[in-house]
Design a protein around this nucleic acid. Structure first.
Length: 486
RNA sequence: GGCUCCAUCGUCUAAUGGUUAGGACACGGGCUUUUCAAGCCUGUAACGGGGGUUCGACUCCCCCUGGAGUCACCA
């Protein structure tokens, strides 16, 4: 089976998190079947164009390490190019391709020219609503004679082209939901060519899906109700229908469609918050979809192999940020050290070329769930913050004891062979050896030592801190602690 | 309001006629422990309601209820 899929992000300047899920499903499906994964820019609404939106979108694909087979590409010099042989892949560049289809619809009587102004349309709908009718075009222009149409067009009157919805029923098999049918009487005479000459989404998508040989159309659930318009268009034009699959919505905690007002919606904002691309993808791919009953973490290849459209849930899914945090932490823990450094660097002004900070990263990843949280943790390794010397005293001990322990441990540290500092467990063994051979309590030694090294009431263990800071700096901090307490 | 979709723990989900209704996040308890994490063990928590079909329904059908989406010259 050869599968072509497409993702149609609107050029609003960012990628919606729901779009990412659809993209991933497209991706898995295409890769699994050896098909093509196509990116197409659907920008037929000239009013909503945003400068640089396509570039930023493609950039997001890059950040997520998502490769596609055909579509617009970002060239080395920052301009846009294309790959694939059924382009252009941007709908605003395909206007001439849509025109003949609209003409055919017109010639067959399946569409008609409409001169109604948007003012009249607004009034008409208001009146319909007032009369408790459903807003729908009243077909005032549906019966216009060819002569009159020509005359008014010649006079320069603005017009649109509407499809003439036939009587009957429209149904299709949704790959996720099964059969869905609509009574055509409920479908409005949709505008297919706007007064600015651009095709509307409905015409463009039907024509493009055909010309680009798209086999599967995956999109959000909000598209279900407009699907009959496209079904009818396929029918009128005699074009083969793709497989439709309407993916459930991603929801706010209150179960309404995810919105900017109630949470983050863009992929970019999640990346900026310090979620790893792989973790985000894992999370979003398994939201409303679960290939195995008792597994949460999946490699991309595994997801690709297991993906099954028919197992996608039909109900909307609330974003569980806490689970995303947990998952990101899992990914953080297994990230190779070199990759960890690369990932964290953009989130801190500190230079992670420093060996101390690189060791700190390894230690602190354990108590962090997002990349942004590292910045805070790292500070104490570079520079000891000011702290109240009183916290050096363990709750079960005394100031005098703390001073004694600090002095002794300082000696111990200074006498440790340099190669003890290459391994946390060697440091732990050395400190514990000191404690047991002197018949001391762990807390009496470990607490003041840890506070002296970190300056913090809550921190990593003293062994980890010794390892990260190194012999010289550790010694300096312990001595500093002794002086400030005495 | 019309049309359409949907309905298992708080959240994400598993179960495809027979299970003590499983897993994950979060939450509670315990172990470990110098603190914070992590880790390990463990607990609380769900089939929206009513009718059918069936020897037997979370699973199939109908109704109700509830929620959501959509009703543009936006996608």
């Amino acid at each position: 089976m050869i599968t072509r899929t497409r993702i149609a992000p609107s050029p609003t300047g960012y990628m919606h998190i729901g779009t990412l899920r659809t993209v991933m499903f497209d991706y898995y499906l295409a890769r699994q079947t050896g098909g093509q994964f196509i990116v197409r820019i659907e920008d037929t609404d000239q009013a909503r164009l945003v400068e640089g939106a396509v570039e930023s979108l493609l950039n997001t694909f890059k950040k997520l390490d998502l490769d596609y087979d055909e579509g617009p590409v970002l060239l080395a010099d920052g301009t846009l190019g294309e790959k694939g042989d059924v382009g252009p892949y941007t709908q605003s560049k395909r206007l001439d391709l849509y025109r003949p289809y609209a003409d055919r619809l017109l010639a067959d009587g399946n569409a008609y020219v409409c001169f109604c102004t948007s003012e009249r349309l607004v009034e008409m709908r208001a009146a319909q609503v007032a009369a408790k009718q459903n807003p729908k075009y009243d077909r005032r222009c549906a019966g216009l004679s060819l002569d009159e149409v020509k005359k008014r067009q010649a006079a320069g009157e603005k017009f649109v082209i509407r499809m003439r919805i036939p009587e009957g029923e429209s149904k299709f098999i949704d790959a996720i939901r099964g059969e869905i049918s609509f009574n055509n009487a409920d479908v409005d005479d949709q505008v297919i060519i706007k007064s600015d000459g651009f095709a509307s989404y409905h015409l463009a998508v039907v024509v493009d899906d055909y010309l680009m040989k798209i086999s599967h159309v995956l999109r959000g659930e909000e598209w279900i109700s407009s699907t009959p318009k496209q079904i009818i268009l396929h029918d009128m034009l005699g074009l083969p229908m793709p497989v439709y699959a309407h993916v459930p919505l991603i929801l706010n905690p209150d179960k309404t469609k995810l919105s900017k007002r109630k949470g983050d919606v863009s992929v970019e904002s999640y990346l900026a918050k310090g979620y790893l691309p792989a973790a985000l993808i894992n999370f979003i791919s398994t939201l409303g979809y679960n290939p195995k009953a008792d597994q949460e973490i999946y490699e991309r290849a595994e997801l690709t192999e297991l993906f099954d459209l028919s197992k996608v849930s039909r109900a909307g899914a609330v974003m569980n940020i806490e689970k995303l945090d947990w998952m990101n932490h899992q990914y953080l823990m297994k990230l190779p050290a070199a990759d960890l450094i690369l990932a964290v660097q953009p989130f801190t002004t500190l230079d992670l070329a420093s060996p101390v900070l690189q060791r700190a990263l390894i230690i602190e990843r354990e108590r962090v769930s997002r990349l942004t949280e590292f910045a805070d943790k790292l500070g104490a390794y570079v520079e000891l913050g000011g702290y109240d010397p009183a916290i050096l005293v363990w709750k079960k001990s005394s100031k005098e004891d703390a001073l004694e322990q600090l002095q002794n441990i300082s000696t111990v540290i200074s006498q440790l062979p340099a190669d003890t500092f290459v391994d946390i467990s060697l440091l732990e063994a050395a400190v514990k050896e000191y404690i047991s051979s002197n018949a001391l309590q762990n807390g009496n030694v470990l607490w003041p030592l840890r506070i002296a090294l970190s300056g913090l009431e809550k921190s990593a263990s003293p062994y980890e801190l010794l390892w990260a800071l190194g012999q010289e700096e550790s010694l300096r901090r312990v001595q500093l602690a002794f002086e400030s307490l005495s």
